[in-house]
Each structure stands twice: as C-alpha cells, then as structure tokens.
Amino acid sequence: LYIEFTRPINLELEKINFRINDEIIGIIEINKNLNDLENFAEPYIDEKTKEKSIRKIYLVQNDFLKILGKKNEKYKVGTGTIEGRFYIDIYIKDLKTNKTFIIKRDNIHIYYESAGIKLFSM
C-alpha cells in the first residue's frame, strides 16, 4: 500500500479488509499513524508547485498470503474456481475528529508467481 501526502498529517491507517463480493475473507489490523509508516522513496518535489510529496509504504504481502494461502489454495481467487470480484477496503481515521473514512478499491488483479504474490489495483 503506497501513500503520498504533502505535509505531515494526523491520520491513522486503521485496518484493511479483504473481500470477495460482500464477504470479508480477512482483516489486517494496523492502527499506525501515516507519518510513522516506512518511507518507500525520497520525497518528491513538484517543479511547478514546489510542494514536497512524502512517500510512505505499508506492506500487505505477508498478511495477504495468510488470508489466501501461499499458493492461493484457500479461495483460489482469479482461477475461475470462485465466482465474484475481489475488493479491499482501507480504513483511515482522522485523529482530530475521530471520524473514520473508507477507501474502497474494487479493481484488484491478483497474480501468483514463483517469486510470490503480485497485487495490482487500478
């Protein structure tokens, strides 16, 4: 999960739900401030606006493999065995207002390779 923002923010990455259709098949509980996540690249400075983009990452691969199985044996997502679509819901909490909002990603493509899983969202 890659996150970019232009100044330190008071948001918390609460959790990520993994769903097939409307069924939750797994949950990753995170509860970390976005500012405290690992950097994944040097900050990017926009040439026009001169704003600095802070780039953070939260790796979900190991949790994802626990949910689906190392060889996709639990749900067989993307193999034609299971009907339906794969989704993730990202829960972010505003620590100032204590309100949580959900980012729903519904165009998820999953590929298993010998090197491990690859997950793409468009």
Rank of each mutant, 00 (worst) to 15 (best):
L1H: 06
Y2V: 00
Y2T: 06
E4C: 06
E4L: 05
F5N: 03
N10G: 06
E14K: 14
N17A: 01
R19C: 08
R19V: 00
I20Y: 02
D22K: 02
I25S: 11
G26P: 00
I28N: 14
N31H: 14
L34V: 12
N35A: 04
N35E: 10
N35R: 01
N39T: 06
A41H: 07
E42V: 06
E42W: 01
P43C: 01
P43N: 11
K48S: 10
E51N: 10
S53H: 09
R55L: 12
Y58I: 03
N62S: 13
F64Q: 11
K66S: 14
L68W: 09
L68C: 14
G69E: 11
G69A: 04
K71A: 10
E73S: 05
K74C: 00
Y75V: 03
Y75P: 10
K76A: 12
K76I: 00
T79G: 02
I82C: 08
E83Y: 04
E83Q: 12
I88Q: 13
I92D: 12
I92Q: 08
D94C: 03
L95R: 08
K99E: 14
K99H: 09
T100F: 01
I102C: 10
R105A: 12
R105F: 00
D106E: 14
N107R: 10
H109M: 15
I110A: 07
E113P: 01
G116E: 04
K118F: 09
F120G: 12
